[in-house]
Design a protein around this nucleic acid. Structure first.
Lengths: 91, 91
DNA sequence: CCTATACATAGATATATGTCAATATATAGG
DNA sequence: CCTATATATTGACATATATCTATGTATAGG
């Protein structure tokens, strides 16, 4: 993961709705309909946010019947967390 | 620091130039003219980026003669790093 | 089949953003 | 004072983004 990848993930997390979605998903898998209940946005807007989070590979999805279940992509999140963790103030 | 603050910092770091600026500044204080040498952008564009980084309090500045020296705001960076560090995949 | 549910896509709109050229401001040196 | 250097500000422009309404698609149940 390089600087551009990290910037892309930061962009995905630069919206507070998406940041909260990721926080919710770290607790476990949720379907779009469950996520939607937590926000004051419409279903298409949530769908847009899920796409943004998917495109930078922060989350993955699984279809079950009519429901789409989303979960954290642990590999990407861990790599991102580690790179941000290296931003240490050397004073 | 709440979710909105974290999202604001992520937005500041969603540009790869700004992310690299922060990385450079973690190594120590630099003036704008020194920072400018690292990028293929004009001076006004750099000035704009420094303002964005300043507005979310990721960096601070100090004037010395005609030069403006920038450095990391350790308190903000540490708080941000810790909050991102809490985004752990619970599988 | 028909309908309801869950989700995605398309299109529109207002706003934000990254960039530059041009200009303004401030300071140091002679 | 005048000039050079360093930086900030302004204004313009093209692009991206967050959001909505309307519509399409797929699946489950009767």
């Amino acid at each position: 993961m390089n600087t551009i990848d990290v910037a892309l993930i930061c962009k995905a997390l630069s919206d507070s709705n998406r940041l909260q979605i990721l926080q919710l998903l770290t607790e476990g898998e949720l379907c779009a309909c469950e996520l939607l209940e937590h926000f004051k946005i419409t279903q298409p807007t949530l769908s847009h946010h899920m796409r943004v989070l998917s495109e930078c590979e922060l989350i993955q999805n699984r279809k079950d019947g009519t429901k789409m279940f989303y979960s954290v992509n642990c590999e990407t999140l861990t790599a991102f967390r580690n790179l941000i963790g290296e931003l240490v103030c050397k004073k």
